[in-house]
Design a binder for these strands. Structure first.
Lengths: 181, 181
DNA sequence: GTCAACTGCAACATTGATGTAGCAATAAAT
DNA sequence: ATTTATTGCTACATCAATGTTGCAGTTGAC
């Protein structure tokens, strides 16, 4: 593969992710146009629409997996691991804004990978519960859902907040809440 | 209009909202089939796809508006109004799970109504800030986003939790967070 | 019982998206 | 300079979704 080909492929993936996030039914033609390449070129790279989606998901899963690895969720102290995870995952959510939960259902392989990553995070949340970092009356599944919701919110609705500050905001809201206590 | 016609219309709207929430590109044929009516019947009720979407949005906006009215966001004490709003809005989110922010962009009228409702809630959040119910370092827009995220999360990912308990969970996570302090 | 409204069904036209193939032009690699 | 890979463009076939029409059957209202 030549250099320009690789550049085009990556451009299509990123542009596609952005457009598909706004409108999951965005046409291949629209993605190609936004990426600045011809429609047929996209079809040469990706056998069909599914293949394009799979490639986008895989790119997101790759990035997310790297973040999970580097956060050392099982070894590092909970507050440290949490912050490292947040600082890593927020840029991933921004770069690949596609909603993996909804759009990957037809792709069993990607779905399985996603489940595995989800399980790693859930295990971490459970550890946070067990080690007393969360209140005893908090359900682990609820805590997990809250964390995901906060990440998505800061990632997509506040793109101007840089990753370290965003991680602070999320960790703070997650652990302390927003009210005066 | 006869009784069965009204029943069918309402059934199409609710079924459509449910399917469109899972997959915004769900076909009219799929919605009609899930609602148990013929495809042409749906076309008789709604001139086109846009009209069907508009009707769904309008139904959601009507319900949400009623909740905002009854919560007395400007008069009632903040904690009371917050809880009343949550207990009302969570069933609305569940009954009409469509993502209004994304899907109403092509409908300026509905978009304007949505903006107006959004502004009412933002004003309420601002009052909560001003009256000292939120920490002084909390940005009102961030607080607003967190509240929305928590509502969506409990509404869609924990459908088994009933509305009063769900409202408690959200208000608690919003004000106090999940961590030990 | 009659009438009006409503429905399902079949058929049809239209449109937009998808996917393929061929060909000429271009640019990197050798 | 020649080869090779890649691209844009055009044309085409296909398919799924949309929207319309006519007709016969059913059901509620009067």
């Amino acid at each position: 593969m030549r250099a320009d080909a690789a550049r085009n492929l990556s451009s299509v993936l990123r542009t596609g992710a952005r457009l598909l996030a706004e409108d999951p039914s965005t046409s291949m033609a629209a993605i190609a146009a936004a990426a600045g390449v011809d429609r047929t070129t996209v079809h040469r790279r990706f056998a069909n629409r599914e293949a394009l989606l799979r490639a986008v998901f895989q790119a997101k899963l790759d990035s997310a997996e790297r973040v999970l690895d580097e956060a050392r969720l099982t070894e590092a102290p909970v507050p440290v691991a949490l912050h490292r995870y947040l600082e890593g995952i927020i840029p991933v959510a921004r770069e690949w804004p596609v909603d993996t939960r909804r759009m990957m259902q037809k792709d069993p392989e990607a779905s399985a990978r996603r489940e595995a990553q989800s399980a790693r995070l859930s295990t971490f949340i459970q550890r946070a519960c067990d080690e007393g970092h969360l209140r005893a009356d908090i359900d682990a599944a609820w805590a997990r859902a809250v964390l995901d919701a906060l990440v998505d919110s800061i990632a997509h609705q506040f793109p101007a907040v840089d990753a370290p500050q965003a991680a602070d905001l999320v960790a703070d809201a997650f652990l302390r809440g927003l009210g005066v206590t």
